[in-house]
Design a protein around this nucleic acid. Sequence first.
DNA 1: CGAGGATAGCTCACTGAGTGAGGTAAAGTG
DNA 2: CACTTTACCTCACTCAGTGAGCTATCCTCG
Lengths: 154, 154
Amino acid sequence: MREGVMPADPERAAALEVVHLLRDVALRLELAVGEFARTTGLHGTDVRALIRLLDAERAGAEATPSWLAQQLGMTSQATTAVIHRLEAAGHVERLRSRSDGRSAQLQVSDSAVELGWQFFGPLLNRMAAETATLSPADQAALKRWLTAMAQAIG
Amino acid sequence: MREGVMPADPERAAALEVVHLLRDVALRLELAVGEFARTTGLHGTDVRALIRLLDAERAGAEATPSWLAQQLGMTSQATTAVIHRLEAAGHVERLRSRSDGRSAQLQVSDSAVELGWQFFGPLLNRMAAETATLSPADQAALKRWLTAMAQAIG
DNA sequence: CGAGGATAGCTCACTGAGTGAGGTAAAGTG
DNA sequence: CACTTTACCTCACTCAGTGAGCTATCCTCG
C-alpha cells in the first residue's frame, strides 16, 4: 500500500512515528487556536498574531509590523489589516519607534494578555504540569530534541 | 513585566519553557505547510486537508467529508469546496461508501502522495534522522510525552 | 553634502475562501 | 410508516488576504 515512497527501514520507521506524533500535537494546537478565535470573536490570524506578539514580549524582542508579517507568513498589507483589527479591539498599541522613523513598535495591552491567559493558561498549565513530572535531565533532552526539530524544519 | 498572570514557581517555569519550545516547533510546521502551498499553487487549507487524508490512509481509517471538516475545524460547506478543489486538481477521488449511502469516502491519488512526499519527505526525513539518533528508551519517553501533550490539548 | 536606491508601512481595488441559510437524500427510531 | 437525525450539497454573501502602487524615512557612495 504505497510503501514505495517511504523508506522501509524499521529504525527510521520508529523515528517517523515519533515525528508523526509531533505533527499531531502541532495540529491540535492549531485547532485550539481556532477554537479560541471562535469563542472570542477574533479571527484565527489575529489570535496567531497575538500569540507571536506575546512571545516577542516574553523574549524581550521588539515587535514590528514587518517582523509580524514574517512570523505569520503573510504579506505586509494583510498584517497591516490584522494590526488594525487588533488595535480597534484594544488588544494592541502602535508606538512610534524612535530608532527608525519608518517603523512602528507593537505593544500588546494588558487586556489582551489576560484574555489570552484565560484561555491558553489552563491549557499551558496542563502541559507544563505534565512536563514537570519528568526529571530535569529528561526535560533537557526534550529541549535539545525540540530545538533540533525546529532547526530541521526551518 | 506582567509576572502577575504567570506562576513564578521556578520548576513550573522550566517546564513552561519546554512547552513554549513545542509551540515554536508547531508554528514552524505550520509555516512550512504555507510555503508548500505557495510553491504548489494550492491553498493552505487544501494542503492541510491532503496531509490529514494521508494520515487517515496511513492509519487505515476511512476518510469522509464530515470527518475531514472536523479535522480542519471548518464547516462542512467549506470542506465541500476544499474537496472540489482537490478533486479538480486530481489529488483526491470521491468514492461512494456502500455502508452508508449518504456518505462518501475520500481517496488520495498517487500523484498527490508523490507531490507531498517531494516537499515534506526531505523535511520529515531530516526530523526522523535526528530522532533516530536517540536511544529507543528516549524515543519511547518522547512518545509518552507527546501523547500526554496531545491529551492535555484536546 | 545630496542623488539614488532600499526599506517600512500604508491605501485601494479586487479575488475567492469560508459562512449562514436552506435543500435533498439516506439512515435510524418510535 | 411517519418523524427525526445525519451526511452532504448548492446558493448568496462577507470579509480576509493579495497585487499594484504610494509616501516617508533611512542608508550608501560619489
